[in-house]
Design a protein around this nucleic acid. Structure first.
Lengths: 249, 249
DNA sequence: CAGTGGTCTAGACCACAGT
DNA sequence: CTGTGGTCTAGACCACTGA
């Protein structure tokens, strides 16, 4: 576990970007590009702060953010080590559209329904509104390479989105919600599986009884208000959920 | 958004428990028990620090830990607010055994296989060892109320666990791994679905072709070493994955 | 404008790991 | 024992929000 040759960091004090953030970004880049070998020690915080002309708390803040990301691990009496990294994404509030686009799958959307209706009991409970409240229901078929991938049914409070069906065919729902100035905060998800009904099979080009992945999700904004309730069905033969998670310590 | 009546906090400076942690625990308790109403402001950090006889950074550290948990939200120029809370668990590295036990489902385990063997290609890749390395394979059937719930196949490096089949029938694998002094750090998971084969149906008391939930997971310890690769199959009629997640900001 | 959180400093002492 | 990260202090200035 030898130490590394001292790396070069460039800090711009005139930049509006916080110093700790500049440092954490450069550290992260050094780790990902192999400039800092897995298992190697980072060098103690005091020296690092002195070398960079920063105070120790600022350096600690930079390091801590990478510890929270799972890239580094601190041990008292030992030092800060680069983790042998299998790390990728810590599980995001993913958008199927973005996932497919990132995978080069050429996503497309067909809007099957777009209109308001009175919320049924289950939807009302999920959105935290009284039963019978007017809500927007959107049903979409998501395709990749022209093949159906999933059937997406979403309920939203009315007035949240001013986008019509046309916008929904161009991009993902989450992008539209964010574009409406809403800050997403958290979500509650349930993932399960069931056999396809005849109608579902028809829509997704699967035989009746084929296994389907299901996801129900309620998303909340930073005021704690529910902004979306989704009930999605994926072809199990074409899709699975993949994610990384960190152990709470 | 009126302010709250000032709450009482008791800090013990002679305790080995850090002050920021004592404060964050008491804040969290106050939030969960309704002493701090959702949407209410917490009061500014300077005053809070003065009232508690703490420095501002210490108070900030306490507040920040709750922000990271999703319980609070800070807005510059506004203040720190209690989030309208639907929050529960932020998604843990869950153990099926613990989940069932917490739900009062009386979990039981039947060990179907327990022995070492040469790692096949897929297993070797997941564990990051050369193909053909000796690894421990454990196959278990998990039951709840005497009904089969899941079939669990796990591969581990030899020597990691000294527990025999008897211990594996008493508790979950993760508890045994932790009891062996290993600090779990992260995991990579894939959740999918497929139709049951005849053999799987037999084991899980489902008809052939019934939908099954599948999970593959590789777990890493805090040195980045893979400690376990699991390939699990759950009865979709009896089980689903439920979790909360926070949006990366 | 006043008030808030966001960032930063330059120290201090303590707890724990490894020698 | 020495060296590390863990905690804590008492200030400072800035950026943003809302009146």
């Amino acid at each position: 576990m030898a130490n590394q040759p001292p790396l070069q960091f460039s800090l711009d004090r005139s930049s509006p970007v916080p110093l700790y953030y500049q440092l954490s970004q450069q550290l992260e880049a050094a780790i990902e590009q192999g400039g800092l070998a897995p298992g190697s020690l980072l060098g103690n915080e005091i020296d690092l702060a002195a070398r960079l002309g920063l105070s120790r708390p600022t350096v600690r803040q930079a390091i801590q953010s990478l510890v929270d990301k799972g890239l580094l691990i601190r041990r008292r009496g030992v030092g800060t080590q680069v983790l042998h990294s299998q790390v990728k994404r810590p599980l995001e509030l993913s958008s199927l559209y973005d996932d497919l686009e990132a995978a080069g799958q050429q996503p497309a959307t067909r809007v099957l329904h777009h209109g308001t209706e009175a919320a049924a009991a289950g939807v009302a409970a999920a959105l935290g509104v009284p039963e019978g409240t007017e809500v927007l229901r959107v049903e979409r078929l998501r395709l990749a390479h022209g093949e159906p991938m999933a059937h997406l049914c979403n309920h939203l409070p009315v007035g949240l989105l001013d986008a019509g069906p046309a916008r929904l065919e161009e991009t993902g729902l989450y992008r539209l919600i964010r574009a409406a100035g809403i800050t997403l905060h958290s979500a509650r998800q349930t993932i399960g599986a069931r056999a396809a009904t005849a109608e579902e099979g028809e829509r997704l080009a699967e035989p009746e009884g084929a296994p389907l992945l299901t996801m129900e999700r309620t998303t909340y904004d930073d005021t704690g208000r529910a902004v979306e309730y989704g009930s999605h069905v994926y072809r199990a033969s074409r899709y699975s959920f993949e994610f990384q998670l960190l152990v709470r310590s």
